[in-house]
C-alpha cells in the first residue's frame, strides 16, 4: 500500500541573489511498513524535501512549493493549514537531527510528550501522563516514571534523542520522517536507536523516511534508497541493488569515500573531486558533470533524465550502461 506519493516536487526559495530551486522535480513513494533512505551530501535538498512534505515553511518566507504530494488519498500541498496541523504529529511525524536543541528547555520531557498526546488524541492530563511513561519505557529509557519529570538538560544526548523519538511516535503516526536521527549520537547508541526504530516499525506498521548521509545506516535499516544530488534524485534502487550495482557515478563516489577497515595505512581516502556547485549556478547539462570522472561533451550540455536501468532501479546518467562496480571496489568502465 502506498502511503506517501511525491510527484515532481519543486521547492523554490527566493534569496537576495535571485530564486533558487532547492528541490527540483523530485518524485518517489513510501509504502506502509517500508523504510526509504534519502542519501546525499549536505545541501543537496534532503531536509528541504522532508520539510516540504509537512509544509514546514513560514508563510512569508518566499518559499514556493509545486508538484503533488499524496498522503494516503489526501493532497497535502492544497490542504488548508488547519488540515496540515491535524496531520502533523498525528499521521506524519518528524524527528529532527539535533537532540540538543530539539527540546524546549523550559518544560520537562514528560510535559512535551504529553502535549502532543493531549493535542491530537484528546487525552486527559492523567491519561497522557500514563501514556508518556509508557512511551518512555518503550524507547528504552530506564526508570521512566522518574525521567518523565526531568528537564532536557538533565538528560544525555542519547536519552534526548529517545525522548524525541517518543515524541514522534506517541500518536502512532503512519509515516515517520527521521532527519538524521542518529548523526549526533555515538555508535553504540546509534545502533540501539536504529534497532528501536525497526522494532517500532514492525509493531506499528509505519513507513519511515530516513534522511541520512551515513551509508552504513542505510545498509543497516533501509529497504529502498534514493540518492540526491543538487536537488534532484540521481539514483533510486533497492538497498541490495544499490550497494551491489550502483549505476550513477555520484553513488559510486559516495561509496568509495567510505574508509575501509582493510585499507592500507596511510592510504589517502577517496574524495569526490570539486565542490557542490551553488544553487545559483546549476550546470547546464548533467548536474554532476563538473565533478564526474566520466563526463563528456554530451554530459556537459544535455541534462539526463532519471531512467529505469533495470527493474525498479533508476539512474540519472547518460553512461549508466558503462558504469558499475566490478571486482571489489574498483570502478570498471568500458572503453575509457
Amino acid at each position: 500500500m502506498t502511503l506517501l506519493k511525491v510527484k515532481n516536487l519543486k521547492t523554490r526559495f527566493s534569496t537576495e541573489l535571485g530564486e533558487v530551486t532547492a528541490v527540483d522535480g523530485v518524485s518517489f513513494h513510501v509504502n506502509a511498513g517500508e523504510t526509504v533512505g534519502l542519501v546525499g551530501e549536505s545541501g543537496c535538498g534532503k531536509s528541504v524535501t522532508s520539510l516540504s512534505i509537512l509544509r514546514l515553511f513560514r508563510k512569508h518566507s518566499g518559499t514556493k512549493l509545486a508538484g503533488e504530494i499524496f498522503f494516503e488519498q489526501k493532497e497535502l500541498l492544497t490542504s488548508s493549514m488547519e488540515e496540515m496541523q491535524e496531520i502533523r504529529g498525528n499521521q506524519i511525524s518528524m524527528i529532527f537531527q539535533d537532540p540538543m536543541s530539539s527540546l524546549n528547555p523550559v518544560y520537562t520531557v514528560g510535559n512535551q510528550i504529553s502535549e502532543s498526546l493531549m493535542l491530537h488524541q484528546k487525552l486527559s492530563k492523567k491519561e497522557a501522563y500514563e501514556k508518556t511513561i509508557e512511551m518512555l519505557s518503550l524507547v528504552g529509557i530506564p526508570s521512566p516514571e522518574k525521567r518523565v519529570n526531568d528537564y532536557p538538560h538533565q538528560l544525555s544526548g542519547g536519552m534526548r534523542q529517545r525522548v524525541m523519538i517518543a515524541m514522534g511516535l506517541c500518536c502512532h503516526p503512519k509515516l515517520l520522517i527521521a532527519d538524521e536521527p542518529t548523526t549526533a549520537l555515538d555508535v553504540t547508541i546509534q545502533a540501539q536507536i536504529l534497532d528501536l526504530m525497526k522494532d517500532l516499525q514492525e509493531q506499528l506498521q509505519m513507513g519511515i523516511m530516513l534522511i541520512t548521509h551515513d551509508l552504513g545506516v542505510v545498509a543497516e535499516v533501509c529497504d529502498r534508497v534514493l540518492v540526491m544530488y543538487l536537488g534532484q534524485i540521481v539514483e533510486e534502487a533497492s538497498v541490495e541493488t544499490l550497494f551491489e550495482n550502483p549505476k550513477h557515478p555520484y553513488t559510486i563516489g559516495l561509496m568509495k569515500s567510505i574508509p575501509t577497515i582493510d585499507g592500507k595505512r596511510g592510504e589517502k581516502l577517496h574524495v569526490i573531486e570539486g565542490m557542490v556547485p551553488s544553487l545559483h549556478q546549476i550546470p547546464a547539462g548533467c548536474r554532476f558533470a563538473p565533478r564526474c570522472p566520466f563526463a563528456d561533451e554530451k554530459c556537459r550540455s544535455h541534462p539526463p533524465d532519471l531512467i529505469e536501468v533495470s527493474h525498479s532501479h533508476k539512474a540519472r546518467c547518460w553512461h549508466h550502461e558503462r558504469i558499475g562496480i566490478g571486482g571489489g571496489n574498483a570502478i570498471a568502465i568500458g572503453n575509457q
Binding site: L56, R88, G89, N90, S102, N104, L119, H120
Partner: peptide, 17 residues
Amino acid sequence: EQTYIEAIRALGGKSWR
C-alpha cells in the same frame, strides 16, 4: 529559530500555542 519550535510545528502545534 530554535529546533524545538520547529519540532512543535512538526507535531502540529498551532501558532497561538
